[in-house]
Design a protein around this nucleic acid. Structure first.
Length: 283
DNA sequence: CGAGTTTGACCTGCGC
DNA sequence: GCGCAGGTCAAACTCG
């Protein structure tokens, strides 16, 4: 069905930690004797993962593989140095502009101009007191023919922008669930059009709408930790305490590397099992 | 008719 | 301060 090879060791920068990780190659070719990505993560049960045509490749890639991303220092800080987001932080700018729009509708041009000025000043004053903070972001790359990978959550596209120095546009999606303000950006790498870069922002406040899933956040995380813990113990003859795993999920901490031999998948799972689980807020 | 997409306009932040 | 690029809004449109 799908093969997964531990390709090479790379430096990852996700969340607040950077780490080494042998990223898996997910290949939808038929191989019954293989080990699934979810199996690698220690998850015993999973259902079909990416809703992709057979023959398409899905490859989790280290961010360093795409040279143009992130493009700026700001981008890097967004991906690598997360700050805790304050409640309502994401709605500050939109709420302000909505208020502005309502005012504009009901007033004359001159009045509107004055009001606009006022509102801008108020906004400025607000900004000085309350710096806009972003939700934590999680970026990853996949090798896929389809831009928008099925991850078990429902998304509404709210924007698309041309990206500088790239022929491929960036799409903006929001989780359709009410009171869940998770967003994601999807764009193709211009250096390698087969690579899709997905950036999640925020945490889901609800479980995946896809029903009947046995491998939830807990099983995924505990499973992945088990796998890496077992491997680490084999290699170092001592138990592994995985702080990064417990905070970030399946990601390995620094200095923990995976076996070099190729691991093959016997089945395929869902992207949801990897990413949105990380974003799911456990209260 | 409701949900989702498209797309031009607008807002915001950052670098120079 | 200005210009640029990223990010968001919202009306119009499409689709089931």
């Amino acid at each position: 069905m799908m093969t997964m090879g531990v390709k090479k060791k790379e430096d990852y920068a996700i969340g607040s930690s950077s780490f080494h990780f042998n990223y898996p190659l997910l290949d939808f070719s038929d191989d019954k004797s293989s080990l699934g990505f979810m199996e690698l993560l220690g998850v015993q049960e999973y259902s079909p993962l990416l809703d992709l045509p057979l023959g398409s490749n899905v490859e989790l890639l280290p961010t360093s593989d795409v040279k143009e991303l992130p493009q700026t220092k700001k981008d890097w800080s967004e991906v690598t140095n997360q700050q805790p987001a304050t409640p309502n932080s994401s709605s500050i700018s939109s709420a302000s502009s909505e208020a502005l729009n309502d005012e504009q509708k009901n007033r004359t041009v001159d009045q509107t101009h004055d009001e606009h000025k006022k509102t801008k000043e108020q906004l400025k004053a607000k900004k000085t007191n309350q710096k806009r903070q972003r939700e934590p972001r999680f970026a990853f790359m996949t090798k896929s023919e389809v831009d928008h990978l099925e991850d078990g959550y429902r998304w509404r596209k709210y924007g698309q922008k041309a990206v500088k120095n790239s022929p491929f546009p960036r799409s903006y999606y929001r989780c359709t669930s009410v009171s869940c303000n998770v967003k994601k950006r999807v764009e193709r790498s211009f250096s390698d059009p087969s690579i899709v870069v997905t950036t999640y922002e925020g945490q889901h406040t609800h479980p995946s709408p896809v029903m009947g899933r046995s491998n939830n956040f807990c099983s995924l995380m505990s499973g992945s930790e088990n796998y890496m813990s077992q491997y680490y113990q084999q290699q170092h003859q001592q138990p592994l305490h995985v702080d990064a795993l417990s905070s970030l999920g399946f990601l390995s901490p620094k200095n923990v590397t995976f076996p070099q031999e190729t691991a093959l998948l016997s089945d395929y799972g869902r992207l949801q099992d990897v990413v949105p689980s990380l974003m799911f807020k456990q209260d």
